[in-house]
Design a protein around this nucleic acid. Structure first.
Lengths: 301, 301
DNA sequence: GCTTTGTGCTTCGTAATTTGCAGCGGTAGA
DNA sequence: TCTACCGCTGCAAATTACGAAGCACAAAGC
């Protein structure tokens, strides 16, 4: 794409932080890149970068412009995808950012199901906490985001929201495993493992605990649910997870018990896209499939 | 803008219908233009034009692309406007399509008021019926549209809607001028002048008459309100207009009487923009001013 | 049926633009 | 003071785009 190359170069420079570095990345000489940028700034009518002793950085005008550039590049991708689609080849690419909970079971099965029908579509899946996922959308680095408890809802279009209760996770021989109705306060009596603050489930836990007299005193704070899953098998500890991240029936070492909504708010699993953006054919269809899959009850998982 | 020229050329070709004509318009040779298009199609990966014996025409892929191009050009304008704005110069351009009724009084006074505060902003005003105004927005040929009774509301963002009653317009010595409460059926007894079907006020008239036993039998159908205004001074005829298009107090030759809502629905004057589009600074501020001006009651005009 | 007109497209020599190389001046950190 | 890295600039080479002319073809015009 010749007519767009300058824009791509500008983005590369803004990412590299210096013209020379960006020139190396893009396999051209720094002088050529330098002159292209100067030429663009002249055409544009205003400087885009502020020159620092150690390199360059976008000025406010440049920030405005780079947002435009990213939007245009993403939109051009969309057009190409639509064109490819109407010429019969069902190919394309879907880029999605999602919570950790969706990694082990949900996303793999969904992507496999989609690819069974559209083998020409490729995927990139990035694990992001709720804040980073939104940042991805904003920078046009991802088409979709599927996260619990999003923060800045106003900046995005919400395609779907479903509620999921928080589950307590423990070993089969845990004393609490025999209780059929488990309360959050029971869990906190035992050693517990929780994720760090940026994770949605932790946000819900903090909210719930703030209304209780008991305090949360985690023996471990880990951003890996895998760690939690395995740790509770070594000590008689309790972990927390959403059902979509659990193999509710198929796990023979762990026990999962839902916590009542009165104890801890249900988590909102939300499928979002950048506000006002038109998705590529592949992304839109995949989003649709996700919506159908999620609209079922979690108890049927 | 060098990196965008090919896109502009493509748009020119699609408008001219032939490469040679477009080349003349753009002051280059047809061979150069031809090669640029071929080059673009190769980069793009698919033909954009279908070649006809008498010229070229956009194929479906091209239609998709041209929409992207127009959006990109409009968005770049917006960015440049914002950049100009943050560097202190309050300049820019506002392009608005609006109904005939707004031409004599409303738009001139609004634009003058805006330019009194922002002398660097220029305007283009196009008179369009409600359908053509929407087409303008869709093709990114206008930033705003202010029309009565829009048709495809779903494709646009509505910034404001205000109701305006239909007024009967007649000479000062007209027999009906003495009645203080005028009904539509009274007007239709006399010779009447109406606009053609594509105009919003005619749509309302047709709707109203379809519920009556009386029929509409216009002695003249004219798309110029000026014609109507002057004609009713020659014959004892009745015309129709919205109050925003009338000088309610200042006209010493004509009488204006509102028709009751039960006789004929109030017209919806609607300020719209292209769905999801971010307007330039100047356009957004002007839209804001229009909204403020219109939110007052028509009776205070 | 023939000419005329208008189309997209190609060839080729030339003009315009971009690139790479080397070097300059300047700033920050050692 | 020295080194490393930065943005920037002449200048010649390489690349690219352009204009003029002409070709093949199809639809009107006569």
């Amino acid at each position: 794409m010749r007519h767009i190359q300058t824009l791509v170069l500008i983005e590369a420079v803004s990412k590299a932080g210096s013209i020379r570095k960006a020139a190396e990345d893009m396999n051209i000489t720094s002088s050529a890149l330098n002159r292209r940028i100067q030429g663009f700034e002249e055409e544009f009518g205003a400087p885009i970068f502020e020159r620092l002793p150690r390199g360059v950085r976008l000025n406010p005008a440049g920030e405005l412009l780079i947002q435009h550039i990213r939007g245009q590049l993403a939109d051009l991708d969309r057009v190409r995808s639509q064109v490819a689609d109407l010429s019969g080849l069902r190919r394309g690419h879907v880029s999605i950012a999602c919570s950790q909970a969706l990694q082990p079971y949900f996303m793999p099965s969904q992507i496999a199901a989609y690819r069974a029908e559209h083998p020409g579509v490729s995927f990139s899946v990035r694990v992001r906490d709720r804040e980073a996922a939104e940042e991805d959308l904003r920078a046009f680095q991802g088409d979709l985001a599927l996260v619990f408890e999003p923060i800045h809802l106003g900046d995005f279009d919400v395609l779907l929201t479903v509620e999921q209760p928080v589950f307590a996770v423990m070993a089969k021989d845990h004393p609490l495993a025999t209780k059929d109705r488990l309360r959050l306060r029971d869990c906190l009596v035992y050693p517990h493992v929780v994720p760090p603050k940026r994770i949605g489930i932790r946000y819900l836990l903090d909210l719930a605990v703030s209304r209780m007299t008991q305090k949360m005193e985690p023996i471990a704070e880990a951003d890996s649910f895998e760690f939690m899953r395995h740790y509770v098998q070594h000590e008689q500890a309790v972990g927390f997870q959403f059902p979509i991240g659990l193999n509710l029936r198929g796990d023979d070492r762990l026990i999962f018990r839902p916590l009542p909504k009165s104890d801890i708010t249900y988590g909102n699993l939300t499928l979002m896209q950048m506000k006002g953006r038109t998705l590529s054919v592949a992304s839109a269809r995949f989003a649709n499939q996700l919506a159908v899959a999620l609209s079922g009850n979690w108890e049927t998982l």
